[in-house]
């Protein structure tokens, strides 16, 4: 568990206290090493999608407010004959954002593999968010197709970040297939239902040797916090920000939520207990009747 390893010189925070005697007390917070995925290193643990924003301007502002360093993009047919204006890439400076092409909308392994190849050619990036869907209404992943495509893409040198259901067995199979990260869904894509089965996410996290990123289902900031508190090393979201009434403000909330959840995880929460334990001394209480 490398999460507590001090990778860099610890930042020093000045703790402001009312008592002058300990006014200069300095605390050393746990340093969080960056997240490494293949050739990429990220200090932000939020991954944002680029779909469904009300405008390109709101997308640009929301991405900036979230602090993300990696954004997902879809591979789609060029609209032929349409005037060639600005493209999505004109809004996504490469020095600021790593591109994570997805295979969204693919319902079989072959289709996903072809889409991944096209995305790699467009993005000059070996990273792919693999998703092979099994059902158009739930957008739940097809486990068989996902595993098949994952094996082929890993063999072809891709850094595969693999969208999957919250099934611990499939997560292990994907890990065995060589994916760089498993990305279980908290809830169906775009549903905003949060993390429906935290127990399954916990089991995946306890057993996985590769990074686990919660992908899909985030509706609001607390969902992000919960994912990080459980131990996820990253969260990928799109709709929760893009379709919020104020996407930029929600993006800022997601950033704070990610930091809060990650800090809480690193800090180590107390165990839950059935009975109370007093916070104040239980001795020295003044006499009663």
């Amino acid at each position: 568990m490398p999460i507590r390893a001090a990778a860099a010189a610890p930042r020093r925070l000045h703790l402001v206290l009312a008592t002058p005697l300990i006014d200069d007390l300095r605390v050393t917070p746990t340093v969080d090493p960056p997240l490494v995925l293949g050739k990429h290193t990220f200090t932000s643990r939020l991954f944002l999608g680029t779909g469904k924003y009300p405008s390109m301007e709101s997308m640009v502002a929301a991405l900036a407010a979230s602090g993300t360093q990696c954004v997902t993009v879809a591979v789609r047919r060029m609209q032929l004959g349409a005037p060639q204006g600005k493209t999505l890439l004109d809004y996504l400076p490469r020095e600021r954002y790593a591109l994570l092409p997805n295979t969204a909308g693919c319902f079989d392994a072959e289709h996903a593999i072809r889409t991944a190849m096209l995305g790699r050619e467009l993005g000059i990036s070996e990273m792919v968010k693999l998703e092979v869907l099994g059902d158009p209404d739930t957008l739940l992943p097809d486990p068989v197709g996902t595993l098949e495509a994952a094996k082929a893409l890993v063999k072809d040198g891709f850094t595969v970040l693999c969208y999957t259901s919250d099934d611990p067995v499939l997560a292990r199979r994907l890990e065995d297939a060589g994916v760089t990260a498993v990305m279980p869904a908290g809830a169906p894509i775009g549903s905003g239902q949060g993390i429906l089965n935290p127990n399954n996410i916990r089991i995946i996290l306890e057993r996985a040797k590769v990074p686990v990123i919660v992908d899909a289902g985030v509706g609001t900031a607390s969902d992000v916090t919960i994912a990080f508190e459980l131990g996820a090393v990253g969260v990928l979201l799109n709709t929760g920000v893009a379709l919020a009434q104020d996407p930029v403000r929600m993006a800022r909330a997601m950033k704070a939520a990610a930091e809060a959840g990650r800090d809480a995880f690193l800090a180590g929460r107390i165990p839950k207990k059935l009975y109370a334990t007093a916070s104040s001394p239980t001795t020295g209480i003044i006499a009663g009747e």
Binding site: T50, G51, M59, A74, T87, G123, G190, N238
Partner: peptide, 24 residues
């Protein structure tokens, strides 16, 4: 890309020309 100028087209070819769009 490097092979586009040396890849001949044949009658009946099916081509897909794609780019990036917003997505999650």
């Amino acid at each position: 890309r490097a092979e586009q100028s040396t890849t001949p087209l044949a009658d009946g070819d099916r081509l897909e020309v794609v780019t990036f769009f917003g997505g999650g």
